[in-house]
Design a protein around this nucleic acid. Structure first.
Length: 436
RNA sequence: GGCCCCGUCGUCCAGAGGCCUAGGACGCUGGGUUUUCAACCCAGAAACGCCGGUUCGAAUCCGGUCGGGGCUGCCA
């Protein structure tokens, strides 16, 4: 059993392609089959090495691996169609010689027989029947001698010994053409599986007009690979038992093309985000810290200093509980990085008051006086000061929050102060005192 | 237009003739917790497109209809 995917390097790997790749991979891994990745670059105008690299890179990022093909090698050369033009031309001319195809305006067209039926079994759609009368003669070799998709892809599948072709439903109407070519080649006809498409929120095939749907863009947005993997599985398939969160092994164990739903699914990035949050929260705190630092450095375009790392180390556990995406980290911890600090003046006005001023003033003195600047001492101090002045938590705490973190929205207050350290906290309080 | 595919809450998924006064999840609304934002907990609104048929019985089978989508290129 051998499956494949054949992306075209005419753009970045997008979410629809990678879902097809994922299902192929799952089926192969689940049935002991092998998985091949080839590059369909007959469109030499639009194909680039950068896109090819993006595809390979992002497939790997998701955790998909393949046994044969581009990047890993195998017995069939470099697995790029651009390297096989001779082979396609040879076959096209053989077809002409045997009367199966004919020249037309410099191109070569495959002659579709009349009044025949093409039948095949599709794993998700069942028995399919097409009338050849509804299929036009189609070009297999362009006038510039380059092959079209129909010839190149079909010949590759035959030459590489693919036994199951699972691809997007958009090529279901082309399948009769491919079977005709296979018959002309006297090849074994593989099994077919036409997977439903992924749609945008408007219910149309996912494409550029839905914004950037590349896998890379989701990585850039801070989506974790396990969350992406898990979410993608859920689009058109389910492991049963209303199970939504599961790992690779479970997916491999239960996956089958036969229970992939036949209808298209709309890609919902809200649910992806929610699931991403789940995966962030379940990360080992060390892994989370490492990954966070890399995202922060990326956003800041600089390395972090040692004392910044120390401060981060104290706040990250709280941050891990409240973000949905890794890129949200930077703004959460910005107040304790060595970056320009500024209090949001509008928010300051909304929390400032005479009572708040009094609280801030006394808090500053008490923080100076604390013997051990520990989390519990900070909390203890702040709470008892609240009692002493007979203030509501909201009055004292929110003013402190804005003063120290610059905004009303921040990680937990005591942790924030603890992470920021005594000196800076006191300095920031001083700044706010008597500030209109 | 022609050929083809598809049709359960707004969205994703469960449901393979009686377990369905249709279940789970995201999102949404309300509540709880709470020093903010989240997270977390509880509750709620929300769907079998429609019409026929088969059957004692249909979300599940059949036909039609309507609706959505794909293809219709010397793109893939």
């Amino acid at each position: 059993m051998k499956l494949r995917i054949a992306p075209s390097p005419t753009g970045q790997l997008h979410i629809g392609n990678v879902r097809t790749a994922l299902f192929n991979w799952l089926y192969a891994r689940s049935n002991g089959g092998s998985f091949l990745v080839r590059i369909d670059d007959t469109d030499t105008e639009r194909s680039t090495d950068e896109f090819k690299a993006d595809i390979v890179n992002n497939l790997k990022w998701l955790g998909l691996d393949w046994d044969e093909g581009v990047d890993v090698g195998g017995s069939q050369g470099d697995y790029k169609q651009s390297s096989r033009f001779n082979r396609y031309q040879e076959i096209a001319h053989e077809f002409v010689e045997s009367g199966l195809a004919y020249e037309d305006d410099g191109a070569i067209r495959f002659k579709v027989p009349k009044s025949q039926q093409i039948q095949f079994n599709d794993y998700v759609r069942g028995e399919m029947v097409f009338e050849t009368d509804s299929v036009e003669d189609f070009v297999i070799l362009r006038s510039d001698k380059s092959p079209t998709y129909h010839l190149a892809s079909t010949l590759d599948d035959v030459d590489y010994g693919i036994t199951i072709i699972a691809r997007g439903e958009d090529i279901l109407p082309s399948t009769p053409k491919h079977i005709l070519i296979m018959q002309a080649l006297d090849a074994n006809i593989p099994d077919f599986c036409h997977l439903p498409l992924l749609f945008g929120p408007d219910g149309k095939k996912l494409s550029k007009r839905h914004g950037d749907t590349s896998v890379q863009s989701f990585r850039d947005k801070g989506i974790l690979k396990d969350a992406m993997f898990n979410y993608l599985c859920l689009l058109g398939w389910s492991p049963g038992e209303d199970l939504e969160k599961f790992d690779r092994d479970l997916a491999i164990e239960r996956f089958d093309f036969k229970n992939v739903l036949p209808h298209s699914a709309i890609f919902d990035d809200k649910k992806l985000m929610w699931m991403n949050g789940l995966y962030i929260r379940e990360k080992e705190s060390n892994d989370f810290e490492t990954e966070s630092i890399s995202y922060i450095q990326n956003t800041l375009s600089r390395d972090l200093f040692d004392d910044e790392l120390l401060r981060l180390n104290k706040i990250l556990p709280s941050v891990q509980e409240r973000i949905e995406s890794m890129v949200d980290i930077t703004e959460q911890v910005m107040f304790l990085l060595d970056e320009p600090f500024e209090v949001n003046s509008e928010e300051w006005i909304s929390v400032n008051s005479e009572e708040a001023q009094q609280y801030l003033f006394e808090l500053r003195n008490e923080l100076i006086a604390i013997e051990d600047f520990t989390l519990s001492n900070i909390e203890e101090t702040m709470r008892s000061l609240l009692k002493k002045l007979d203030l509501k938590p909201k009055v004292g705490f929110q003013a402190t929050r804005v003063s120290v973190t610059g905004t009303k929205i921040s990680p937990p207050l005591f942790e924030s102060i603890y992470a920021l350290g005594r000196e800076t906290s006191i300095a920031r309080l001083a700044e706010s005192i008597e500030k209109l």
